[in-house]
């Protein structure tokens, strides 16, 4: 069983939901990433998503775009990413998911890329531009390397296709909550809640359902969890916090915010 699957099993046993937190590797720099990870772990994050920056992140809004460009400007690379993952693995056993864009895998070669990240300690991948229809080789190589493949579904994905995507997914299924790119959303509309319900019905407990894009506050976390999600993904809100926090204070600020979000995932169903 993978670290991700094991984590969800344990959470289920304790009747808990998961907080998944996203940060960009190399932003604001290598040490800043390590500090952020420490804060996330101390704050109670269940799974960490590490972004490997790409020059053309077309599913991302301004906050993640900016963090990606800054990290690349400072020389973020695949080898540096591997180095960061190894440093994290020395400190914690928390499940680590890599999020990036397909070209970085295709260019290096699927197997070469995947075996290297597995060896460093990554547990699964999210590729927002890898539609299931093009994923044959990626899936094959990911299976060979025992990596979880986390695909995305959207509020406009048809039931038949949700089934197909869920079948190809392992670890968890990622529901994009809104029509839009990553970033801060003020209020969720009804279609998001319908999408959560519909997806839950279709996957019927076979794989945890995580909801992300536009989730930034404890109130929103609570709302989404109450409406049936097994996990909540928060990204841009962490990056905005990192952006405005002096480096020595990053760990504490991140810990405190993660802790607020984690608390919001815990509630008792009547």
């Amino acid at each position: 069983m993978s670290r991700i699957q094991d984590k969800f099993r344990k959470l289920r046993a304790n009747k808990q939901k998961a907080l998944i937190s996203y940060i960009v590797a190399g932003y604001p720099n290598e040490q800043g990433t390590i500090s952020s990870v420490r804060g996330l772990v101390k704050g109670g994050t269940d799974i960490i998503e590490l972004g490997l920056p790409f020059s053309d992140p077309l599913a991302d809004g301004p906050v993640i775009q900016n963090a990606s460009f800054e990290a690349l400007k400072k020389g973020m690379s695949f080898n540096k990413f591997i180095k960061i993952v190894r440093r994290i693995r020395k400190e914690t056993d928390i499940p680590l998911v890599l999020m990036t864009y397909s070209n970085l895998l295709y260019h290096r070669g699927y197997n070469k890329f995947l075996s290297a990240i597995k060896d460093a300690g990554i547990d699964g991948l999210i590729l927002p531009d890898m539609a299931i229809d093009e994923a044959k080789e990626f899936l094959l190589e990911a299976r060979k390397n025992n990596l979880d493949t986390i695909f995305l579904i959207s509020p406009n994905t048809l039931p038949e296709r949700i089934k197909k995507i869920a079948d190809a997914s392992s670890g968890f299924l990622y529901l994009v909550s809104v029509f839009g790119t990553t970033g801060v959303q003020r209020k969720f509309e009804d279609y998001t809640l319908h999408a959560i319900k519909a997806a839950k019905n279709i996957v019927s407990g076979k794989i945890p359902l995580a909801v992300g894009f536009g989730v930034s506050s404890p109130e929103q976390v609570k709302f989404i969890i109450q409406n049936g999600a097994d996990a909540i993904i928060v990204g841009s809100a962490f990056l905005r916090l990192i952006e405005k926090t002096p480096q020595p204070k990053i760990e504490e600020k991140i810990r405190s915010f993660a802790s607020d979000l984690k608390k919001a995932t815990i509630y008792n169903k009547k």
Binding site: D129, A131, S154, T157, V176
Partner: peptide
Amino acid sequence: RYIPETLV
């Protein structure tokens, strides 16, 4: 078609 699911 290497695209985000929303565009499918």
